[in-house]
Structure formats: C-alpha cells, structure tokens
Amino acid sequence: MKAQLLKLAHARSGDKGDTANVGLIALRDEFYPVLVREVTAARVKRHFGGICKGEVERFELPNLKALNFLLHESLGGGGTLSLMTDAQGKTFSTALLRLEIEIADDEARSLGIEP
C-alpha cells in the first residue's frame, strides 16, 4: 500500500545559503527503519524535482530516529538574493511530508499504519 510520510514522520526545515535542510523525524521509533529504507536521497531528489536544482545529500541520525536531507541549489540563490516567498526553505518540511512511499501490506499492518 501507499503511505504518505505525513503519517510516519514530522519534520522541520531551514536554510544555509542556497541549500535547504529538511530534518525528517519518525513519529514512532519503529517507523525509523522504514524511513531509512524508503526515503533515500534519490527518492527525495525526484520528489523535489522542480524545486531542487542541485544534489540531495542524506545523513542518518539513529539516535534521534531522524534523517537529515540537504537540498542544494533550492532557494533561488538563498538568503537576501532569493525572490521566493519561502526564501529560507521553512515550508520544505511539509513539502517532504507529501511524499508517498510503498509499504508491504503486512508490514504496514504490523506497524499500525493505515492507508
């Protein structure tokens, strides 16, 4: 089944120059391995296709049950140069939570994830 990340994680995002960062945090500890497996850098790059012009890097923080993504060249030049409403990438957090991942029905059931 498909599950939107909104059901599995919460997130906060911010900026460093023209790079946006999105921290993705598992809502429950047992969701973290699913995030690690499914929400790869490549998957996030595809998701933000029209927005992120550069590379996507991913870092794992198992201690916080979180993943950190760096989306390079995503903020229209960044800081004061950017003409975007969201020049600081503060809403990239929920933009990532729109992502839908595929989970086997059995696994979803055992994790208590509803479609």
């Binding site: 997130a11 906060r12 911010g14 921290g23 870092f59 923080l61 916080l64 979180a66 760096l70």
Partner: peptide, 16 residues
C-alpha cells in the same frame, strides 16, 4: 522529545 528533536535538526548540515 519531539519539540526538542525538531529544533535539533533545524538548519542542520552534516550532523557529525
């Protein structure tokens, strides 16, 4: 824990 975790990942680069 969730409110503090959200702030920890704010503007994070390489966490190491």
């Amino acid at each position: 824990v969730p409110s503090v975790t959200e702030q920890l990942v704010y503007e994070m680069g390489d966490p190491h």
